[in-house]
Structure formats: C-alpha cells, structure tokens
Design a protein around this nucleic acid. Structure first.
Lengths: 336, 336
DNA sequence: GTGAAAGCGCTAACAG
DNA sequence: CTGTTAGCGCTTTCAC
C-alpha cells in the first residue's frame, strides 16, 4: 500500500494519538517505538511503524520541544552579502548539527536595533545557546543576553571584553601586522580607504591597529578616505579614486577589507597604475576572490569557518567564559 | 527598581504563572494584558506589566506556538557563499517578517539528500509555508512537500512544472537571450565555460537555451569546458584557460554565471587578451561585482530580491498554484 | 473585568 | 512489555 494514498489533509496534522490507535496501542508505546527508546515487542514495533507510514505521520517538534526542551542554537550575523559571514555560518551550522542541535539564523544588517530585535525574538524560542557577532551591543541587547541564562558566544572579535565566551581574532593586531609588513617592504607614504565605521566596528579597530603599527615604525598616515557607504567593491574603487585626487603621492594603501581592496585594484587597472610598483594594495579577510585576481591580493586571512565551528563548540560543550583567539595569517600576495 | 536585580536564573525560565501570581491575578488575565487582547482594568494592567518587567519575563514561543500555531516560514537554499541566494534570502526574509511570520533557513550545499533532510526536519516545525530552491527534488522530497499540506513555493526557475507555486525566471530563455545578443554583435565562434551541472541544474538549462539560440542563429558551439568543480572565480579562470588551449580561435565565451565569467575576465587580463576585441565574455546573474570590473561585465540581471519577496507573498497571501515569471534584464556591459 | 478549566501534541514516571 | 497519568507553558472558552 502506498503511503501517498493515505496522505492526510495536513494542517490539522496527524498526531501520535492517531498513529497509536490505528496500531491498536497506547500513545506512550507508539512514542517509544518511534523514538526507539524504551522497550516494546517486535510485533508492536511493526504495527506502529506501519501505522505511522500509512498515515504519513510527522512528529510535531513544537510539542516535542515543549515537553523536553528545544535543542536550538541561535546564530546572529550582520549580513549575508558577505562571504565572511557565510563562512562563519557554515562552520557554526555544521558544528551545531553535529552536536544534535538545530541552528536558527537571524541577520541584523549591521543595525544594533535589528540585533536587539533578533535577540529578543530568538530568546523566546529558548535556545540552548546564542552566538552573536562582535562585542558591541546596545545596553538592552547586553542585558537580554546576560539575563537569558543561556550560553553566549561573541564571535569574530577579541579586542575587548565579552559577556561570556569570545571566539575570534584580534583586529587591532591584524591592522598592526599589515602596517609592519608594508613598512618592511619599504613603503613609506601610506593611505587608507575605508567604508562606514558606524556599521563595521571591527574595521575601525583594524585601522587603529594599523596606525599604531605605522607609528611604531616611525611613519604616519599620509591620507585617508573614510567612506560613508557600506563595504563593496564599488565603494573601494570610488574611495581610492578620491584618495588619489587628494594625496597623489602615496605609495601604499591599506583598505578596510578585501572587497574594498579589490575595488581599489580595479581602479588601478582602469587607470593603468602599476601595482605594486606605483601603488601597493593591502586588504583584510583573505577571500577566495582576492587570490583569484590576476595579481593575488596581499591580505590577512582570517579563519572564518573555524571561528564558527569553535564558537559552536564553546557554546555547547566548552567551559564557560572561555576566550579563544584563533589567530590570522598574513598572505603576501602580489599587490604589495 | 532595576529589572536586572531581579534577573532570574533562566534555563528554568520565568513563566506566565509566576508573573500572574506576583501581580496577584489569574494566569489568563496576565496573558490578556501581555498580549493586549481582551479586557482588563487599567490598574490590573499596570500590576501585570510591573510584575513582568520585575521578573524579566520572556514569553515562551514554543508553548505559544503549540497553543495557537507557529507562524513560521521555512526557506531552503542551496548555498550562502553566493550573493544570488543571499539576495533571495534577504527579499524573502523581509517579506515574511512583514507578514508577521518568522523565517527559518536551511542550506543544502546543492545536495538533494541534504535538501531531503532539511525538508524533513523543517516540516516538523509545522511551518505555514515552505520555500525551496529549484524545481528538481528527490522523489521523497517531492512527496514530503506535497503531503505536508503546507503552501509550497519553488523559487528561481520557471522551466518545468512545480508542486504548487513557482516564482522565478526562465533560465532557458536567459540562455537564448544571451545567444541572440552575442550573435547580433557579430560574434560567430562561440565557446562555453561551465561548472558542475550535477549541482546546479539551472546552469544546464541556461546552456540548453544558449545552444538553442545559437542554432536558431545558424551557428553552433565551437568548444566547451564543463568543469566538475563548484562555481567560483578560480574555476572560471581555469576553465577558460583550458578552453582556449583546445579552441584558440573562439571569439566569444558564454559562462555558466558571473563568478565564472569574472574568472575568465581575470584570465584575459593576466594573459593580455583584449576584451572584447580578441574575446568577448558573457555571464549570468548581474552581480554587483561584475559591474565594478574595469570593464563592466556583459550579463543578464535576475531580480533576485524580488524573487524572494514575491515567493514569500505567494506563499502567505496569494492564491495557490500561481506561476510568476519575474523576467530578466540583459546588461550589455563592456565585455561583449 | 476576571479566573477556572480544558487542551495544543508530546514525553516521562510509574504502575501493572 | 504496555497503558495510565501528569505535566511542559500558553491560549481560550465560558461562567461568574
């Protein structure tokens, strides 16, 4: 007999009760069989399984969760239009599932208010843990997270103090490493092209580290272009164009991230500026796209998948209040 | 009095019962006040609200859902490492929230088996609707979707028949339009560079449309490189390199998508091949990255955000079994 | 305007 | 090995 023939009209939903009575057993027996938990005779098993497939039974996770707890993990990221967060999500999602939990996502579009909303609404689902991005939150967000009684992991950023666990890399150190590297390559007149800091605090931390690194090397930033737009290839392109108008004699540019740097690279191509001889370019993140350019981008590769994975592990099985710095890797590339 | 001082140890969770008794009212009255539904005196209202904030009450959505239904919408996409799906997710997520539902995502990594799993596990949450990507599913997936009794929307692709609603564009027509455009620009010796079809059926449909378009114009494909790797800039670069080794005299290349085409463009840059004079390049999707290249990529722009938005609307408020073709736009660019 | 009681679908403890 | 019972936390009649 084909299960489809018996397909129920579903919104009502087939319940365990119905399966049990069709099988001629009690509700709890049916439950035991279906969850393969507890004991029952082989024959009972058969009857229940048959009844379940005949009716097209689908367990109701909501009822199940109410009864035993939800095994959900909430993951909140600023954006999806950015491979960085997609990678983290992939790492975190896999690790979460591995541990038998189900990931639930929310996106904030870099808005602290939206983050607040996301936190509030996800907490209502009683997740076992909450993974958020960054260390900066509104007061209300911090309070909700702290009071939630759940395990909290703040991902990406180790420059600052966290609520519970922190898993990420130091953006300040990444900026400093970039500065040191460029200085060691004998660049001296530095520029910076960035996007809207208000939305991306970590980019600001990198710039601070970069400037600290320059200062330690006895140089200073010769010019900067702080865009007010979101990060994008186009914004990087426009930003470099503006910067070169104002400070034509710079010989190296640090960008707020790879997307921006790639835009800068395109600007150089379009204008015939030799990279890196006339102008050196340095990004941040180590995206695949950067390494596929005609000249691989000089950048700092961050372990994004690992950040997601370790964040999930810290949340689900680690000791509380851990602090995990996963480090980064400088990729020399060919643009600096 | 500060709410934090009274922050409960939460995993147990503050319940409506506790709020009600602190306020000295019945459970149902507290419920009415908190949901602002039904009638109660102003004074009662005050007392309940105070009690709730004092205890840091957070409603339990699971219990709520069990009682009244879940207002969830399941959204299943193949990948997040691809702006295409990020855009659709953004459009769908916003529209879903607008209608008072909560989106729940799952990612399949282009694997039909993972899709099956995702469908199975999301159905258990009793979503009001399920948005899936593409028209091709395993038998079991189709059966589960059909039997779920939920509204189903298949997104992206209108070339084929769907289970319920279908919202997308015709990939066959997109391929055909690309062919016609290139022919009208007097290219004659065509090549194709693609990635793994097994994983991306829509790319295969575009190629079929492209070949049909060529045939209608009296030409045929002079060479093709069908990679077995996933789509990426690097894969496009390598694919074009291989193709040119085998068929050096082609004058235009159709790529399976923009990422691949951008890789091809980088190859041309690296090898000093003049675009479009020596070789024309054409992509698909209309990503921002393509328009930020030194020469804007010739491509077909698909209305991705709109696909997500309309899919959500069709699912939540439209008539059943709709079929919405959102159309596409050919972007001439400067590479063809 | 308010509370008691029943019930959403499932699991778990406990008798039999 | 199996059924009965009592919840999980919330909403919703329906009397008062």
């Amino acid at each position: 007999v084909d299960a489809e023939l018996y397909a129920p009209s579903f919104p009502a939903g087939v319940t365990l009760d119905e399966v049990a009575s069709l099988a001629g057993v009690g509700k709890s027996t049916a439950s035991r069989v279906l969850r393969d938990n507890g004991s029952f005779s082989a024959e009972t098993r058969e009857r229940v399984l048959q009844a379940a497939t005949r009716l097209g039974y689908v367990p109701n996770r909501i009822a199940h969760s109410l009864s035993v707890g939800s095994r959900l993990v909430a993951i909140i990221v600023p954006s999806l239009n950015n491979n960085v967060f997609a990678d983290v999500l992939a790492g975190a999602g896999d690790a979460v599932e591995e541990q038998g939990y189900q990931p639930v996502f929310a996106v904030t579009d870099y808005s602290p208010q939206r983050e607040e909303k996301a936190i509030a609404s996800l907490i209502e689902w009683r997740p076992a843990a909450i993974l958020v991005s960054g260390l900066e939150h509104t007061d209300r967000s911090s309070r909700m997270l702290r009071n939630s009684g759940r395990r909290i992991v703040e991902m990406f950023d180790t420059d600052g103090s966290g609520l519970d666990c922190v898993v990420g890399v130091s953006n300040v150190e990444a900026g400093r490493a970039a500065a040191r590297h460029l200085i060691s390559r004998n660049y001296r007149r530095f520029g910076y092209v960035g996007h809207d800091f208000g939305r991306d605090i970590r980019a600001g931390k990198r710039l601070a580290g970069f400037e600290a690194g320059l200062q330690e090397g006895g140089v200073t930033l010769a010019g900067r272009d702080l865009g007010s737009a979101a990060s994008s290839v186009e914004a990087g392109r426009a930003g470099l164009a503006r910067l070169l108008d104002r400070a034509p004699d710079i010989d190296a540019v640090y960008f707020s991230n790879d997307d921006m740097a790639i835009g800068g690279y395109f600007h150089c191509l379009a204008r015939g500026l030799a990279v890196p001889d006339r102008l050196a370019l340095f990004g941040h993140n180590g995206l695949d796209l950067g390494s596929a350019l005609p000249q691989p981008l000089a950048t700092i590769r961050t372990p994004r998948v690992a950040i997601g994975r370790e964040a999930a592990r810290a949340a689900l099985s680690g000791p509380p209040a851990q602090r995990i710095d996963l480090g980064f890797e400088l990729v020399a590339g060919a643009t600096a």
